[in-house]
């Protein structure tokens, strides 16, 4: 690949946008948030993020928002990923390897079915309150 300039990038974006304009905009409301704190990174969150990007692109889900944040507070279950979308409960998945990331895209985002074995949740509100002291 030749070294791209910002102008090349702009042209490529315009070409992709024309392609995307023909697709359904329903997916714009979907957010996938990957925890990238120290423990998440050490547990392989970067590979998880890359797997989500590959899988979402492969399924043409280009308008999903793929975000990264610090720790989601579940270090024992890293890498952790929060998925927010309409018609589904907001879920934090834990121990999300690249294989599980693919499963989340196929089952949760496309199939609207939970990936049961990897569901975690934030620590209970009273526990979070206790940590502030």
């Amino acid at each position: 690949m030749a070294k791209m300039t910002l102008d090349d990038l702009r042209k490529l974006r315009d070409a992709k946008r024309r392609e995307l304009d023909m697709r359904d905009a329903e997916n714009k409301t979907i957010q996938v948030i990957v925890g990238m704190g120290t423990s998440g990174i050490a547990a392989g969150a970067k590979d998880t993020l890359a797997a989500f990007l590959t899988e979402l692109e492969q399924h043409g889900l280009s308008n999903v928002s793929l975000r990264q944040t610090g720790s989601l507070g579940l270090d024992h279950a890293e890498p952790t990923v929060e998925v927010r979308m309409s018609d589904m409960p907001t879920v934090i998945y834990g121990k999300v390897t690249p294989e599980i990331a693919e499963k989340i895209v196929r089952k949760h985002i496309l199939g609207k079915t939970l990936v049961n074995d990897h569901i975690y949740d934030r620590p209970a509100a009273d526990i979070m309150e206790g940590t502030k002291e």
């Binding site: 070294k3 990038l9 702009r10 974006r13 995307l20 280009s62 928002s65 793929l66 975000r67």
Partner: peptide, 27 residues
């Protein structure tokens, strides 16, 4: 500069293009 060209970098579309751009610089 990348925001100016690609907009919100959290969209899968923008992130995919960003990967291509950085890969070309690195190559």
């Amino acid at each position: 500069e990348l925001n100016e060209v690609l907009g919100d970098l959290s969209s899968v579309e923008a992130r995919g293009l960003l990967c291509e751009y950085v890969r070309s610089q690195e190559e």
